[in-house]
Design a protein around this nucleic acid. Sequence first.
DNA 1: GTCTATAGTTGGATAGAC
DNA 2: GTCTATCCAACTATAGAC
Lengths: 206, 206
Amino acid sequence: MTDSKDSRHPRAKAVGKRQRLMAAASRVLHEQGVERTTIADIARAADVPVGNVYYYFKTKDELVEAALSEHTGHLEALTGRLDQLPDPRERLKGLVEAWVSGRDTAARYGCPTGTLAVELDKRAEGGLDLAVGHVIRRLLDWVEEQYRQLGMADPEELALALVGAYQGMSLLSNALRDPEIMTREGARLVRWLDGLTEQVNTPGPR
Amino acid sequence: MTDSKDSRHPRAKAVGKRQRLMAAASRVLHEQGVERTTIADIARAADVPVGNVYYYFKTKDELVEAALSEHTGHLEALTGRLDQLPDPRERLKGLVEAWVSGRDTAARYGCPTGTLAVELDKRAEGGLDLAVGHVIRRLLDWVEEQYRQLGMADPEELALALVGAYQGMSLLSNALRDPEIMTREGARLVRWLDGLTEQVNTPGPR
DNA sequence: GTCTATAGTTGGATAGAC
DNA sequence: GTCTATCCAACTATAGAC
């Protein structure tokens, strides 16, 4: 937002603030967790006066929902870029590389979507917990499609194993505060993807 | 507590209450999450008057710590039982079976230790986050030892992969509310453990 | 559309009677 | 050791001036 006082049309500033709030919500909720984050925290991070937040988001849950849709957006953007690659195997390897490139964040705060899923599961109201499930489902489906294109048997199972491995290594890396776990496990997954044709079809943890 | 008013020695009732509080804390914190759980919730679940809780645990964090040590206890008990088995491979398979047998709880509330790790990571104070790391480390070490006894190369890596797979499948199963994910992924892990010897694993002295 | 002030509620923690 | 009453801080959400 370089032009913070422009006079395009009435909407201009509003949209800017809404976007800033969404981005801030996504970041702060990930770092501090949903329950520990106050509306004031998000307002501050977005550089928006506290009271004004409620003009854009009527409840805290709506902010959480907004953060979730940010995650969805990032996921779509990533898979969209990977879809440019001609080979499904390269697409999957690109996905793993993207995960590994986020190792420092993962080691410090965990996987943004995964930790959100854990937190929202405990949050009874609003069915937000099911919404996270949809985001994860979407990733699962994309991965499954790649395996299908590779002609693998049981692509659904393989997708669960790959995404599960990512969630698992993120959690361990976070709990032990060690980004190297992401690097090592990522390398293992890439190695496994490379050897796919030779393997039967079950991806052991190796 | 059938004998709730016995007169053994002053400690008798006190120990009972403390134990009840620990067990209740462990269960309720897992189901509702740390932040959403109030002292009153735990007191109610343990059937102890609210105000009395503070006699046993001075802060909420101490209750969380107590719950964590309950988890440690369960883990020790499990590995202790598995250590009775003569074959390391059977011990690992027994571990996976134990995980799968908890599928319904995992699908509803996630892995007790894993979700706790995620939550405590966001909880700045008290270094409780590092304490969860120790529990996970302990599991990792035990698994690593089994692989070592099997003569596998890089047992540390294999331990990370196995425990990571468990954390990942718990999270996915929870996010998608599907216990079958635990069953399927568990079967895959067992299959992989069974085929271990046939697999190549870095040629060299074993 | 923007912002301040504040209402209303919840929950951790303590004081102190029994 | 047990329990009640209560203090106090924090936070969501709203009312209403500008």
